[in-house]
Design a protein around this nucleic acid. Structure first.
Lengths: 296, 296
DNA sequence: ATAATTGATACTTAGTAGGTATCATATGGA
DNA sequence: TCCATATGATACCTACTAAGTATCAATTAT
C-alpha cells in the first residue's frame, strides 16, 4: 500500500465514479480500476460495491474514507510544521550589539550556537541602543545586546550585567594621587563622548556622573562607537567616561582606565527581543548567552 | 512522497545508520540514501544531519519521526478495523428460530437484510428454545427467535409479541356448540405435543391450560416441531394446544384452530442474542425485525 | 600507516504504473 | 424496441523508476 493508493481510494470515494475520479487524478480509468482492486486485495476488504456499473461505498469503505481523510490531514500538517522547524533553525539569525560589547565572548557563544544549529547563519550588526530598539520592533533584528532602559511594549528584555563607569585618559597622563586630583584634571580636559542622538541614555549617565563630581563636561568631540572614542583618547585629544566592561576588550590601547570610587552610577546591559518571536534559535541564545556571562 | 519514503525515514531514524537500516528494510544502502535524499528534497527540509559519516536527527527530523509513528499507528489500526467491519458484514449470520415462527415473514426480513448487507450469508436453524439458549451462549447462533423466559445472564432479549393458545383438532371434527363440549372432546382425545425435554416451558403452559379446564392431557404422541404435530393432527391421531401465531402459516392444513376464550394463558416470543455480540448485522436485525412485526 | 567502514554518486536493469484497445453489460434516448 | 452511449474490468504494451552493483571520498579503528 502506498499513499497513491489512499489518494486514489479517497478520490473515487468522493466521486463515486471511476472515470470522473480518474480525470481528477490526471490518469486514465483502467489503472485507477486496477489500483483500487489491488488496494482491496491487499486489505482483503471490499471498499466499493459495484452493481450495474454503479459504485457505492461499503460500510468498510465509508469508515476507511474517514480514516484516510484524517491521516492525510495529519500528514499535511506534519509537513507544514516540519518545514517551519527547519526554517526556524536554518535561516538567518540577526544579532545587534552595542560597540562596547566584548566581541570575543560573543564569538565564543556563536561558536557554541553553530554546534547546536549547524545550518544557521548568524549576522552581527554593531548598532547603537536606540537603533537596535527600532530594528527589534520591526523584526529586522532577532536579538539585541544593548543598554537599558528599553522602553518598548513590543520587546522583552533580560538583564545581563551591571556596568559601572571608568575614566579613560591617555597613558601619558601622570598618575593621580587622589580622586580630587583626577577630578580636577578631567574637569579641565576636553571630553570625547557618544553622539547624544545615538546614545541618549549614555549621555544622561555622563551628566549624572560629572554632576556628582561638581562640573559639566566639555564635550568637544563626538563619535558613534567606543573604539573611535578610545582611539581619539589614545591620540591625546581628550578624556572620556565609559563603561567598565570595555577594559578587557581594549586593554592593548595606550590608555588608562581609572575606577571611579564612591560614585555608584552604572548602566545595565540587557538582551532584548520581540515578544512574538518564538524562534528556537532565539530561545537557545537567550538561555545560553547569560549563563556563559563573564559578569563575575 | 509515498509510504515507502516514510517507512525508510522511520527506519533510518531508529537505526541512525544507513547500512543497518537498509538491511532491516531488505534493500541495499544506495537506494535508501537516495530515497531519504528525495524525501528531504520534496519537503525542503533536512531530516538528518550527516557529519563525519555519522547520522543524527535534526530537530525537524525528531518532530517528523513522532508524527510518522503516529500516522503509521493510525493507518495500521484503520486497516484492522476496516477488516473487522468487512468480516462483520460479509460473514455468516446464523439465526435460530422455533418451529412455530412464521417463516414467510422471516424471509421478508432477510430479503431486506440482504439489501442492506449484500455480502452477508444468512443461515437459518430451526431449533427448539432450550437448544437455542445453549447455542446463543456458545456463540454458535448470532440471534434466536424463541419463547420466553430466557434464563441466562449472558443473553440479552427483546420482546416481540404475546401468543395466546388455540386448540387444534382435525377438520373432520364436528363443530362444537359450547366451550364445554370442546373441553369434553379434547379431554377424551389423545394429545400430540412437544417433547418435554425440547420445550419444557411449552409443556408447563399446556399443563396450566388443561389444569384450568379441569383435566390432565393424555399425551400419546410427541414431536419436536410444530409441523410434525400438525401433520399428525391432520391425520386424525389426536389433538393439541398450540400457540395462536401458527394459524397464518398453516392455514392450508385440514385442521381447525379453535380459540380458547376466557383462558388468559399465553406465551411470549422474544429475540435473544449474546450481550457481547456487537455485530452491525445483529444490530440491524434487532432494530428491524420487530418494527416489521405483524403483532397488530 | 593501512584497513575497514561510512554515506553519496554513477550507471545499469528489473519491475511496475500508467498508457491504449477492447470487452461485457447496463442505461438512456429516439 | 433498437441503437447509441456510458460504465468498470481485463489484456497487452511501454516508459519510467526503484533498486541493484560498482565505486568514490572521507573518517575511524586497528
Amino acid at each position: 500500500m502506498e499513499i497513491r493508493h489512499l489518494l486514489y481510494f479517497k478520490t473515487v470515494a468522493e466521486q463515486l465514479h471511476f472515470r470522473n475520479a480518474a480525470a481528477k487524478l490526471f490518469i486514465s480509468q483502467p489503472p485507477l480500476s486496477r489500483q483500487i482492486k489491488e488496494l482491496e486485495e491487499e486489505l482483503g476488504v471490499l471498499l466499493f460495491s459495484r452493481s450495474n456499473k454503479r459504485v457505492t461505498l461499503t460500510d468498510a469503505g465509508k469508515y476507511f474514507k474517514v480514516e484516510v481523510d484524517a491521516i492525510f490531514a495529519r500528514l499535511e500538517e506534519s509537513k507544514n510544521i516540519v518545514k517551519q522547524i527547519h526554517l526556524n533553525e536554518s535561516g538567518e539569525f540577526k544579532i545587534g550589539y552595542i560597540s562596547s560589547v566584548y566581541q570575543t565572548y560573543l564569538a565564543e557563544v556563536l561558536k557554541l550556537m553553530h554546534k547546536e544549529f549547524p545550518y544557521i547563519k548568524t549576522s552581527l550588526y554593531e548598532v547603537p541602543t536606540i537603533t537596535q530598539i527600532d530594528a527589534l520592533e520591526q523584526g529586522k533584528l532577532d536579538v539585541g545586546i544593548l543598554r537599558a532602559p528599553v522602553h518598548s511594549e513590543k520587546l522583552q528584555q533580560q538583564s545581563l550585567f551591571f556596568d559601572p563607569f571608568v575614566v579613560v585618559v591617555p597613558s601619558t597622563t601622570k598618575n593621580f594621587n587622589t580622586q580630587q586630583d583626577l577630578v580636577l584634571f578631567i574637569k579641565s580636559s576636553p571630553f570625547i563622548f557618544f553622539n547624544k542622538e545615538f546614545a541618549p541614555y549614555y549621555n544622561d549617565k555622563l551628566m549624572e556622573i560629572c554632576g556628582r563630581m561638581g562640573f559639566k563636561p566639555d564635550i568637544t568631540h563626538e563619535a558613534n562607537n567606543v573604539h573611535s572614542i578610545l582611539q581619539l583618547i589614545e591620540a591625546g585629544l581628550g578624556v572620556s567616561i565609559l563603561p567598565s566592561s570595555i577594559k578587557r576588550q581594549y586593554h592593548y590601547l595606550q590608555v588608562s582606565f581609572i575606577e571611579l570610587d564612591q560614585i555608584p552610577v552604572n548602566t545595565e546591559v540587557v538582551l532584548a527581543y520581540k515578544q512574538t518571536n518564538k524562534s528556537t534559535a532565539l530561545k537557545w541564545f537567550i538561555e545560553n548567552y547569560k549563563s556563559q556571562s563573564f559578569n563575575d
